[in-house]
Design a protein around this nucleic acid. Structure first.
Lengths: 228, 228
DNA sequence: GTCGGCATAATTGTATACAAACTTGTGACC
DNA sequence: GGTCACAAGTTTGTATACAATTATGCCGAC
């Protein structure tokens, strides 16, 4: 995308565009997001770019360093654990609610999502597959009819994408769709208790597939990182 | 406070100042927050004010209406229910963790908080009491050593303050400190299970003390509100 | 040859100017 | 007398200019 489109970019659309790029791992953690650079890319002034970066920083997807600029966030091991702790408090119960409120239309949406994810994986679009996998979780909150929780989960999912970029161990891409398939069955059966349990396991599996030993920790300072 | 202080206001301090004013009910829901007005009050340009308002809008404390300006948010009954639903998923388990990690120093902080709240209530500073009551909950997440959850709860607490401003039913100011006292005992005993249960009840009591019937709903439009 | 200081360049922080949109008040026409 | 159209004024939206800060490259001193 050459970005020289005649599209009218707003703070929200720019922020959404950037968030998706981060979510799909097209913008890796640590990437510098220069204001002039982005402004020129989108064909807008720094004013809008700054507002979008501010929005992303509030979602913890971008880190603003004073007088230094904006960078795609690099969640610490600590933060990674905390994000999944929060998800484990919110998502299982939300999955239960979703199961109890499941409708045929919602079920179709979820099936379509999984199908799209398979497509993406088959054509090697790993970033897109990861994004769709996240959308599955957000969709559940929407089905549960909890827009506030949906907003929170949406942020946690995006942050999880950064965490995966940094700490993913094996590329067991299957486990994702497998877990979602199992959840789908529970939803089809409107089995809330099962859905809650499956989601709980799913999140534990996710954390287990990360390498969260404090060893390769964030280079807090170059001083620390280099002097052995 | 005449605001003509020589203090150097930044985006963050202005946002924090405004958030506290909202939290303490000095700025009621629906209040217009004009940019020029605020800029003059703090002695800064609209640039900083806009950034602060943007931050508050991301926390759902301020509603930005395009070409209309910023207003202190007026959570709907729907949103009120959702906020307490989210809190009920996060806070009980967080209270349990806090109890398990409780230290003498943390216990003293909580005791001091309750004491300050009593002071405020005695001197009729209801807004300050409400703020301190909220701080108690945020402090628990800090003690649980979950800064991510702390951030989420902090926002939910501030939104709860708006909800209370709109939907509070009876003046049972006591119930708050009573519940916090009970929690304190559980913390002193390091009884995680009890703390979790008490927090669950506390939140249910809070919701019960609200008038969330859809009757006196938000005047979606004046048209609706006036033609009987 | 290396270290330190200084100057230059680049980038972000803030204020302000101007454009666009909405609100409100006035007046003419029905 | 009421309604609609238009115009003035106010407020927000966006771009840009300038200031402040940081990064970088250069040069001289040791």
């Amino acid at each position: 995308m050459t970005m020289t489109d005649s599209k009218q970019w707003t703070t929200e659309t720019v922020a959404a565009d950037l968030e998706r790029a981060v979510h799909e791992h097209r913008l890796p953690p640590g990437t510098k997001l220069g204001e002039d650079e982005l402004g020129e890319a989108y064909g807008i002034s720094r004013t809008i770019v700054r507002a979008a970066l501010l929005a992303l920083s509030h979602r913890h997807l971008v880190e603003l360093k004073r007088n230094r600029g904006a960078f795609v966030a690099q969640p610490s091991v600590r933060e990674a654990r905390e994000v999944f702790e929060a998800r484990s408090l919110l998502e299982p119960r939300t999955a239960r609610s979703a199961a109890e409120r499941m409708t045929p239309a919602a079920l179709d949406m979820l099936r379509a999502n999984i199908a799209q994810e398979h497509e993406a994986l088959d054509s090697g679009e790993n970033g897109r597959a990861l994004f769709l996998s996240g959308q599955f979780h957000v969709e559940l909150a929407r089905i549960a009819d909890q827009s506030t929780i949906e907003g929170i989960i949406s942020e946690l999912i995006s942050r999880s994408s950064l965490i995966i970029a940094l700490y993913w161990r094996r590329r067991a891409a299957l486990c994702e769709t497998q877990a979602h398939h199992a959840l789908l069955d529970a939803f089809a059966a409107r089995d809330g208790a099962l859905a809650e349990q499956l989601m709980k396991s799913h999140l534990l599996d996710l954390v287990a597939s990360l390498d969260l030993r404090n060893v390769t920790q964030p280079p807090t300072s170059l001083r620390e990182a280099l002097q052995r």
